[in-house]
Design a protein around this nucleic acid. Structure first.
Lengths: 340, 340
DNA sequence: ATGAAAGCGCTAACAG
DNA sequence: CTGTTAGCGCTTTCAT
């Protein structure tokens, strides 16, 4: 603090009332006359009084602050969610402390510690590498998870309907008589696993055997654009030795883009010889050449649902009803030029 | 707060010492014996005591919290800077409250208000549309700006050397005997204006006349990938009616990418007939086809410099030495396949 | 309708 | 080396 701030006491003195009255007026909790109100507000303005939230928080035992844990703010999808959360929260009177965990358990724990010390009112936790294990215990703090495996019960979880998205893609391939393949990275979050599960199930339903040979796990892991990969080139070539019309489910838009580039290197025509579908609806899928058919995730709705659920938890002080509470957000297919 | 937290008083009672002693031990400010220390620490552990930063902040008049104002966290470049700032600050004991201003003056003001109420110790403000005008007054709060016009004096500003970058690009074009052009969007931040200034100056030095006809301002404004534009197509076509070997300075990587796509639509060969250079060093420039020759900004260094400067300001409580204090971060050219 | 006063959790004199 | 105490700015009974 560079210079001493004016406090509620100063305001009280200047307007000739008690601090109690000033407080009532600030919080508009009634029990004051119109005239005093007008007078005090004027003084507040003149003095440039600004409430000290640290004091309010200390006194009332809530900080109007929410912690957001995100694996990588640099990832477009996470960034979109964080941005929406922050906006929603701010317009509802909460500030957000955003923490970049880098998918590291240690950092996550350290952050939760600090957030607890700051007495945040609640936590939004986005994804985590190990879907199964509950992350650093959130210590009884109201928490909502985004994109987490509903493995741990008693948690509120918001997520796109990845399973449904996977189904839509796989059915699209099958409906167009495209021999279905799936290419993914080795990052195994709950969301990717759901997509894979859908792929496998649909294929099984269609009596397709040897499903695992139709799945390629690239030896990379990344939140960002990926480098060209020999492994991918080989896999694509192998496909084209036996198929004339194939369709590939890229586990996300980045992978889909990799596939498209590999195809171009191998002079495979998209979409004539090969259809590619991505997942996420990244801004990039709309601008690449060809643009990528993809499953669009509704980040706004994910964020808003998470915030609503969190604030409910906080304000109702519900001791979390028993059983996991999973909120599935619908997804939609957006068809572009990467598919026939 | 779901359940009552254990306070310093509880710890004091449980370990049979006074709160003062506990406080001293927590803050390691001396004046206690080894044995008491050991005992108290043990109790702290057992009870799961966690310092209440609101109380600390109220008492000591500093919150160990920094506000970061960013135009759009969804923009890769800003996200990278924010991430690095947050990391640096966290490892130095500060939490960050990140605020997405959407380049809106109103939101910026609202945020500064709230941050002030939270008694943040300082502010990092990244860019703003109107480079000239000082943003919502930061009210005597220690502040560091990133990528702001050094117009207002008495401010610390950290920025890439955009002017230098512009010079490097323009000279590159000239050195390769490419007829130089510049294509930009109508977003006029201080950083883009510096790049343009360099372009104009170098051309003037080379006695090139009619410089303005070599600059095309696209009627779009965006932090993200841009849609195809007729305006751009027309401009490119016009260039190719009179030049055989042209080089275009795209004001940033997104624009450069647009140009490349337009060229492909018009069957202009890159880099044989047309060289394109971008600016920023986005991850995308490394993965597009062709990859984009670009000026790389060192986001880590920008972020670190800003944080160091800010914390210095805060801790030294320097009453900002007179005169604007501009820290220029070097940039470097990264040559890829979009240029000959 | 308003005021007095207690106390949230903590730090920092000051006194021993 | 340790304890007592005042007080940071605010909300909230409880009086009046």
């Amino acid at each position: 603090m560079v210079q001493k701030k004016v406090s509620i006491k100063d305001v009280a003195k200047a307007s000739g009332v008690s601090v109690a009255t000033v407080s009532r007026i600030i919080n508009n909790t009634g029990r004051f006359s119109q005239e005093t109100q007008k007078r005090v507000i004027k003084i507040i303005d003149e003095l440039g009084y600004e409430q000290n939230r640290l004091a309010v928080g200390l006194r009332s035992n809530q900080s109007n602050t929410i912690g957001i844990l995100v694996p990588d703010i640099t990832n477009e999808f996470y960034a979109a969610i964080v941005k929406k959360c922050e906006q929603w929260l701010f317009s509802h009177g909460y500030s957000s402390i955003i923490c970049n965990t880098e998918r590291s358990r240690e950092r996550e724990k350290a952050y939760i510690q600090v957030l607890t010390e700051h007495r945040v009112d609640g936590l939004i936790v986005i994804s985590t590498t190990d879907a199964g294990n509950g992350s650093g215990k959130t210590d009884g703090m109201p928490t909502v998870f985004i994109d987490r495996d509903p493995h741990t019960l008693n948690e509120t979880i918001v997520a796109s309907d990845h399973y449904r998205g996977g189904k839509i893609i796989t059915n699209f391939l099958l409906d167009h008589n495209l021999s279905p393949y799936l290419i993914m990275t080795k990052t195994k979050t709950s969301s990717t696993m759901e997509r894979v599960r859908a792929f496998k199930e649909i294929l099984a339903n269609h009596k397709i055997t040897n499903i695992d040979s139709r799945i390629c796990v690239l030896d990379v892991t990344s939140d960002k654009f990926l480098q060209p990969s020999q492994q991918l080139d080989r896999y694509l070539k192998a496909i084209f030795e036996k198929e004339k019309q194939a369709g590939i489910f890229g586990i996300n838009d980045n992978v889909a883009y990799m596939i498209i580039q590999a195809a171009q290197r191998l002079s495979i025509d998209i979409p004539k010889q090969l259809s590619v579908i991505g997942f996420d609806g990244s801004s990039f899928s709309e601008i690449s050449v060809p643009r990528i058919t993809t499953i669009v995730q509704d980040t706004t709705r994910i964020a808003d649902s998470a915030c609503v659920a969190l604030i409910n938890k906080i304000e109702n002080k519900v001791i979390s009803k028993k059983g996991s509470n999973v909120i599935k957000i619908p997804v939609r297919l957006c068809v572009k030029e990467s598919t026939i």
